[in-house]
Nucleic acid binder design. Structure first.
Length: 295
DNA sequence: AACGGACACAACCGCCTGATG
DNA sequence: TCATCAGGCGGTTGTGTCCGT
């Protein structure tokens, strides 16, 4: 599979050296000061002169280094004063965003793993577009990254289907066609996975560490649940009925699942008439559910 | 080789909330 | 109680890259 070099090689000091800068790169390292669009918020905290000097757009290597050095010496927080004290001609907000989304040492770069994707789908079904909340359960991933993943990958599929990605129909589509394949990927990529689930078999009532806040949420959201342990969101409940889980460290590091039973997948409270396409059409549609494109 | 549309993602914006005086 | 400020959040935009023609 072709792996695209990340766009961020332009500004990230480590990746930068791996490729000859293009003429576009040059422009990015020496960007012109873009004309400021002055927002009310900006005028609240900046003088007119400061506004004139503020930079916007892509961060340069020098700016990154300056920010890293300053935070290393003084710590993060107080972003507005940090921006001024450090000599960066950026807003505090811009500094904060750059640090949290990109420069912070524990930020993970690279494609989301199937496990992470699974977790995102699951948490999104519970919490909707609460990106920061979702990100809390994916160590090293930022809300921005997750949001982008959702928009570029998941919503793309929804557009193909001409279904609103927040609709119940789309959730059902995920449950029937996307998740089984994602589980398959997880099975293949997880180092601890095996074709036999016997060693990983875990009673769902004894299931393992939950992402923070998940338990109470799940218990409260399904009042008739007899289980005091791991409870899947309603969308996955059916398809995962017979599957076993093992989740380490609030993360889907290890997941072992039996392949979903097709018959079982059909047992939904949704009428098939609710779908625009028949199952056969969904599966045979070349442009749809091409999981290989997702990672 | 050139072009243009689609895509990916960093960065920005406006709004909201909580802390503080 | 109110005003102000810092920081956080979700939505949107801008722009470089990819890829098909």
């Amino acid at each position: 599979m072709h792996i695209k070099p990340p766009l961020r090689f332009f500004t990230h000091p480590i990746i930068l050296n791996t490729k000859e800068p293009s003429k576009h790169t040059f422009l990015l390292y020496f960007p012109l000061l873009s004309p400021m669009r002055v927002s009310k918020k900006m005028t609240d905290s900046c003088s007119e002169q400061e506004l004139d000097e503020l930079r916007r757009g892509p961060w340069t290597l020098d700016e990154d280094n300056l920010l890293i050095h300053y935070i290393t010496c003084h710590g993060e927080g107080r972003w507005n004063s940090l921006a001024k004290s450090s000599g960066l001609k950026r807003t505090g907000k811009s500094c904060r965003l750059r640090w949290l989304n990109y420069l912070k040492p524990d930020v993970k770069h690279g494609n989301l793993t199937p496990q992470e994707q699974l977790l995102i789908l699951e948490l999104h079904s519970k919490w909707g577009n609460r990106w920061s909340k979702i990100a809390q359960h994916l160590p090293g991933r930022t809300d921005n990254e997750i949001k982008n993943y959702w928009r570029t990958k998941v919503q793309k599929q929804a557009r193909h289907l001409k279904i609103d990605s927040n609709s119940k129909r789309f959730v059902e589509a995920l449950r029937q066609f996307w998740l089984p394949r994602l589980f398959e990927k997880v099975d293949h990529t997880s180092p601890s996975s095996s074709t036999s689930t016997s060693t990983m078999e875990v009673d769902q009532k004894n299931l393992i560490p939950q992402p923070q806040g998940m338990m109470e949420n799940m218990n409260s959201s399904s009042s008739n649940s007899e289980s005091s342990g791991f409870k899947l969101p309603y969308v996955y409940e059916t398809s995962l009925h017979s599957h076993s889980y093992n989740v380490d460290n609030n993360n889907f590091d290890k997941i072992s699942l039996n392949q979903p039973d097709v018959q079982e997948l059909g047992s939904s409270d949704m009428s098939i008439l609710d779908f625009q396409l028949t199952d056969a059409e969904w599966i045979s549609n070349d442009t749809f559910w091409n999981m290989d494109q997702l990672w």
